[in-house]
């Protein structure tokens, strides 16, 4: 890869991926795992990588309990320190973890994590557009559900 890139050349493709990785390097340990995951997904092999990671998600859960099981399994692969260092295996587990949360939300609106709605929404927004279409749709539906929950909360 050219180490003298013109970042404006292709600002939705390779250049964006390079920029994301450089920003992560600039933030160092302060880079958020969501941003590290986004940087991984936008790399030249990012789409292939995320497809492979998500291919392990079979069969697709058909109950909230199954989604929770998936989430718990993914969580065992996430070590915070590895995640903050951008370790590929930890990022893969984090992507699966995020997909389980999105899947449960899209399934019937259940929130299966203690993470704040703001953080979940940001993760759905940032990572959602970067993964394969089937999961993009799940993330989109999860986001709609999350907004509905927020609206219900605000009218109580």
């Amino acid at each position: 890869m050219n180490s003298d890139p013109d970042l404006h050349h292709d600002d939705f493709g390779a250049s964006r991926a390079v920029a994301m990785r450089l920003f992560c390097a600039i933030l160092g340990p302060n880079a958020h795992p969501i941003d590290r995951l986004a940087a991984r997904c936008t790399a030249s092999d990012g789409a292939q990588w995320s497809s492979q990671v998500l291919a392990a998600f079979v069969p697709v859960p058909k109950s909230i309990e199954s989604w929770i099981t998936w989430k718990d399994m993914a969580k065992t692969g996430i070590r915070e320190s590895d995640l903050h260092a951008g370790d590929p295996l930890a990022l893969a587990a984090f992507l699966q973890y995020l997909c389980a949360i999105a899947g449960a939300l899209a399934f019937d609106g259940t929130v299966i994590t203690k993470t704040s709605a703001v953080e979940i929404r940001r993760a759905l927004n940032v990572v959602g557009p970067l993964i394969e279409p089937r999961w993009q749709d799940t993330f989109r539906r999860a986001r709609v559900r999350l907004d509905q929950i927020k609206e219900i909360g605000s009218t109580k």
Partner: peptide, 16 residues
Amino acid sequence: IDVEVRSMMEVLNELR
């Protein structure tokens, strides 16, 4: 600075 950098990352990732 960190907040600025994060918002730069977000603007790059937002949907077209």
